[in-house]
Design a protein around this nucleic acid. Sequence first.
RNA 1: GGGGUCGUAGCUCAAUUGGUUAGAGUAUCGGACUGUCGAUCCGAGGGUUGCGGGUUCGAGCCCCGUCGACCCCGCCA
Length: 598
Amino acid sequence: MAYRDTTLQGISPVDAGRKVRLAGWVAGVRDHGGMVFFNLRDRYGVVQVTAGSQPPGIMEAARQLKPEYVVSVLGEIRPRPAGLANPGMPLGSVEIAAEEIEILNPSAPLPFVLAEGEEVSPAMRMKYRYLDMRRPAVRDALLLRSKTAMEARNFLASKGFVEVETPMLTRSTPEGARDFLVPSRVHPNTCYALPQSPQLFKQLLMIGGFDRYFQIVKCFRDEDQRADRQPEFTQIDVEMSFVVADDVMAVAEELALQLLSKIAGATLPSPLMRMKFSDAMNMYGSDKPDLRFGLEIADATACAAGCGFKAFASAAAEGGVVRGLRVPGAAGWSRKQISEVEDAAKKAGLPGLAVFKAEASGLASSIAKHFERSSLESIARALSAGPGDLLLLAAGRKKTVSKGLGEVRLKIGRDSGLAKPGDFKMFWIVDPPLLEYNEEEKRLDAVHHPFTMPRPEDVPLLDTNPEAVRAQAYDLVLNGHEVAGGSIRIHRQDLQEKVFGLIAIDKATAREKFGFLLEALTFGAPPHGGIAFGFDRFVAMLLGTDNITGVIAFPKTTRAFCPLTGAPGPVSDRQMEDLGIAWRDASRKGEMPVDGNE
RNA sequence: GGGGUCGUAGCUCAAUUGGUUAGAGUAUCGGACUGUCGAUCCGAGGGUUGCGGGUUCGAGCCCCGUCGACCCCGCCA
């Protein structure tokens, strides 16, 4: 006997009278003494099963059922009696009149209730993820992810891209994130590293002649976690030969737009806007601004000299800036709202916020008396203030002020509901700098990665003013999140060595760590470039959430711990011996992260 | 590495200023009930207040440490 002959996808109200055998989970039993109801749930839906006086014994069988028992039910699909349909259920107009109920497996009481709307702590949901995913919200997120991956794969295949797998056991390379390491047994005192991305392999594939490659691939970075960062995550990785930036961007843009349209039903205007990196930093204080709302940053430095207010005047005199946000119609904000914004500014690293209310008679503020009247007028003009607006200004170093105001902007925009669910604002950030100065390390770092091609007209600047060199790189930004990023790569050995030199990777190190790439570049490497989508982030965006754990089947906590499996866990002495390694602090051997609530 | 919020019954939460025996909903167990669908009604059991220390006549509450969860900064080419 088969467990089932159809699923809840395979039945509909027009099937009334048909006898079916269904299998699934019991979701709630309602025992009325002379009549028993329960819901049967499978991957596709929920249907009500009834057990009454006929056939004999069926009611007693139904009475044995408890939540999450696995059952196989034989019964007839019947329309529900008049007035008893459940409009909240897709199959609410029918029910299954049970004739046979077989318990395939009972279930212990669950550690938490699966009902919709019941909040359960994230750690609990992770520990029992296999139960959590029985809930429609989690199930639907994973289904959406699968559908998105399928669409992406079909799209890229249709464009002639070849899917190639690259190694998970590779070698550690300097720069970038911390590697996850895998000690080698066969080669004592060496480690593989898990790939932070397939970057070098996809470049080698281009050199190997696969002019269009893609892969939906796991990447690993051992850095501290965030809501949108997991230690292992998935990229849609793409690389193309004989292309310029526009070619790569065109493919990526079409893919992103198609996914948004097919999966989220959102049609965005095409082609997407392109914003210069420097403009983004100036206007929004961010390299990934959320454009679902305006609130651009305006400059008022010119009004600051001689304005009378010391913090402003000295900032201007010392080469700093005075910049501000105009919040339309926010002059009526409460003391509390303003103080929340001031707190956010402090957290964002701003020394303080000068707050003005724009009134018909001019700018009003507790600090207005420190300003020359004409300065207040020019500040109002600089920020295009109109009556009813709230002005928030900060003074100091340009980078600090812009970044700080950018964060304040984000808080105001998101808190005041300017970013609406279902609203998608996607665009490109282009022309970022190739290099930036790393204060801590006292040297230059690659902004994107060290294989990024400078803009040809900027190449001479590598010798004179490297920080002014712009990269042929591009980021795709969706609702304030970087969902994809890529670049044209360096395909000439001499230029690659030069860039390594600038970011303080000396020739010997470069030869040792990247020798295989440098050598490959000498054997007829075609011009090439590519892009990688942060797949988890993108799916999360399609779903309208910021947290990627919701779209990952088995996510880890913010401390990279898996409450389900207990990973990372201790290993045996024997395993350590095989690998020829020992823990530096043997007293902590076998220490395992534990749930502090237990 | 740093900042913030939090940790009380299986789960989600409450507990006035530090004051008697730590409560509620839900889940679990037992009973009633023929149209429920978050069933309802009656009853029962269920607690080392994350862990360790301190202050106090007295600590769920205050202090110190520690473990853990989440959010953020640093970090994440």
